Simulated scan of single mutants.
Amino acid sequence: MAEPDDPGCSTVKAVEVVGERWTLFVLREALVGASRFSEFRARLGIASDVLAARLSKLVDTGLMARQSYREPGQRPRDCYRLTESGRQLGVVLCALQEWGDEHLPGAPSRVAFRTADGRPVTVRFVDDEGVVVPVDQVRAERT
């Protein structure tokens, strides 16, 4: 049986990367288009030192990439773009948000849409043949 801090467990590894509250919020804002330090700061109301630490960790772990930009007449600055790995976490964040919308009081917070036609999408279990599987018909096992 794996211990909660088993370094070989994928869940443990993932939580070590994204398990901090502000990290999830930074990722959420990046998924909806934030890329500049000032945007993250304004949207989240997060302390600059905490934001800098979270962005550095996201860059170090390959979830975001740092890119330089320069506004006319200004010094060069960095912006932060999600990598493919970071964009894939969108599924996790959308699942968490959908769960919150369904099980916690309050109005739904966000909806995900298909870029091609604007149709809403949801997160579901899908088998290897593309069939949606109800959550009560899914079991997890250790490999």
Rank of each mutant, 00 (worst) to 15 (best):
M1E: 06
E3N: 02
D5W: 11
D5Q: 10
D6M: 08
G8A: 15
G8Q: 12
S10D: 11
A14H: 06
E16A: 08
V17Q: 06
G19L: 00
E20K: 07
F25R: 13
F25Q: 13
E29P: 04
V32S: 04
G33S: 10
A34I: 01
A34C: 08
S38Q: 08
S38T: 01
E39W: 06
R41S: 06
R41P: 01
S48E: 15
S48A: 15
S48I: 01
S48H: 11
D49Q: 04
S56G: 14
K57E: 14
T61A: 07
T61N: 03
G62L: 09
M64W: 02
R66K: 15
S68A: 11
Q74A: 14
R75Q: 12
R77Y: 14
R77D: 13
D78Q: 03
Y80E: 07
Y80A: 04
R81K: 12
R81I: 05
E84G: 09
S85E: 15
S85N: 14
R87S: 04
L89M: 11
L89P: 02
G90A: 10
V91L: 14
V91T: 14
V92Q: 12
V92W: 14
C94S: 12
A95F: 05
A95H: 05
L96D: 08
Q97E: 15
Q97I: 11
E98I: 14
E98T: 14
W99F: 13
W99L: 11
D101V: 03
E102R: 14
L104W: 11
G106Y: 05
G106S: 09
A107H: 11
P108K: 12
P108I: 12
S109W: 06
S109L: 04
F113G: 03
F113T: 09
R114A: 13
R114V: 00
A116V: 14
D117Y: 01
D117R: 01
G118P: 01
G118T: 00
R119S: 13
P120N: 08
P120K: 06
V121C: 12
V123F: 09
V123K: 07
F125K: 00
V126L: 02
V126I: 14
D128F: 09
E129F: 10
G130S: 13
V132K: 09
V132H: 03
V133T: 10
P134E: 05
D136I: 02
D136V: 04
Q137W: 11
Q137D: 15
R139V: 09
A140I: 11
R142D: 11
R142A: 15
T143S: 05
T143K: 05
